[in-house]
Computed example of a mutant assay.
Amino acid sequence: MGLARIWATILMTPCAYFWGRKWNLLDLVTAAMFVSIHILCLFAPFYLSWTGFFLALVLGNTTAMAVTLSYHRNLAHRSFRLPKFLEYFFAYIAVLSGHGSPIEWVSTHRHHHQYTDTEKDAHSPLKGFWFSHMGWILDSNRRFGRYGGLRNVDDLKRQSFYKFLHHTFLLHSFILGVILYAVGGFPFIVWGMGVRMVAVYHGSLAVNSAGHTWGYQAWNTGDLSKNLWWLGVLADGEGWHNNHHAFEYSARLGLEWWQIDTTWYFIKFLEVLGLATEVKQPSEAQKKRKALEAKTTIASHEISYGD
């Protein structure tokens, strides 16, 4: 048994029981990290400064967009292609968000699309709003055991860079914290790690919870995904979630001109520079076909109810 497998076994072995379930070491470490960064936020009023605010703003927007651009649209859905050096660069910036490794994130998201809003969905609000927002992250045995672990990300597991990030992702955030402390002391930790990570976490996690609870459906996707305008603005375009579930291959989620999608704007900029290629988005014919399928489904339901 290799060292990595031994370490994984240690992390996943139940070691505590409270709140009606078993907790392993990974769950406890994850919970401790969440609590720690939220506690750091409590110090923000005492270290209030424009420098700290702009640090959180710039670093937060950078790492948040890296998650949507790299983890989500590039790696999970292959909505566009990048040169390897740029693909790895954006993936590394996304690691600094604290959202876990690319392998784990992409695996969970692909399973989410495979089993959307069913018992096997990792974070459906069918199990409660809190569960879909944060609770699912704190139950790794259920999360990985429900659909058999990391079996749908062989494309990433074949690459040494992603395997390295998978085993060291916490280390990189720690290094960033050390650098911030060396440059600006404890105030930079409060704003650059605490405030920034809490804002990015809840903005991203709201796509799983609010994005499947509130808003409207432009497409009949057979799930609870919604388009939510304020989430579209706050989450770099991810809030147009019903659009995404209708056309999950699309690099563009804000399909209407008025649907703000800052990640798409950046992808388009990379395409103009010749750095993003094979950029996918639904054609008008595909949209009409999807709309026709929806009308057919609704009509069949009405006939069924009439009988």
Rank of each mutant, 00 (worst) to 15 (best):
H172P: 10
L228F: 11
T213P: 02
H167Y: 12
K226A: 08
E248W: 01
L180V: 14
L253F: 13
T221P: 10
H172I: 10
G185N: 12
G239S: 11
G194I: 11
G211M: 07
S204Q: 14
G237E: 10
A199N: 14
H172Y: 05
K226C: 14
G185T: 09
N208I: 04
H166K: 06
L165Q: 01
M193T: 13
L171P: 00
V190E: 00
S209Q: 03
A206G: 14
G215Y: 06
F169A: 00
V153W: 11
R158L: 02
L255V: 10
L234V: 15
F164C: 00
M197Y: 12
Y216Q: 03
A210Q: 06
D154N: 05
W219V: 10
D155Y: 06
L228D: 04
N220R: 13
V183H: 02
F247W: 05
R196H: 13
N220T: 04
G222D: 05
S160N: 11
H166D: 12
F174D: 03
L224P: 00
W214C: 07
G177S: 13
V198C: 12
G194V: 11
W219F: 15
L180T: 12
T213G: 05
G203A: 14
M193P: 06
G184D: 11
L224A: 09
L255H: 14
H166P: 02
W219K: 04
L176I: 12
N242K: 07
D223M: 07
G192E: 03
S173N: 12
R196P: 15
D154E: 09
E238A: 15
G192K: 06
G211K: 04
A206M: 15
W229G: 00
L170G: 11
G192A: 11
L180Q: 05
S209M: 03
W230Y: 04
Y216A: 07
A246M: 00
L228P: 05
M193K: 10
A182N: 06
L176M: 15
V198W: 07
V233Q: 05
S173L: 11
W230I: 01
I189N: 09
D223Y: 03
H241M: 06
S173Q: 13
N220L: 11
G203V: 15
F174K: 10
G184N: 10
M193E: 13
M197R: 12
T168F: 01
V195S: 11
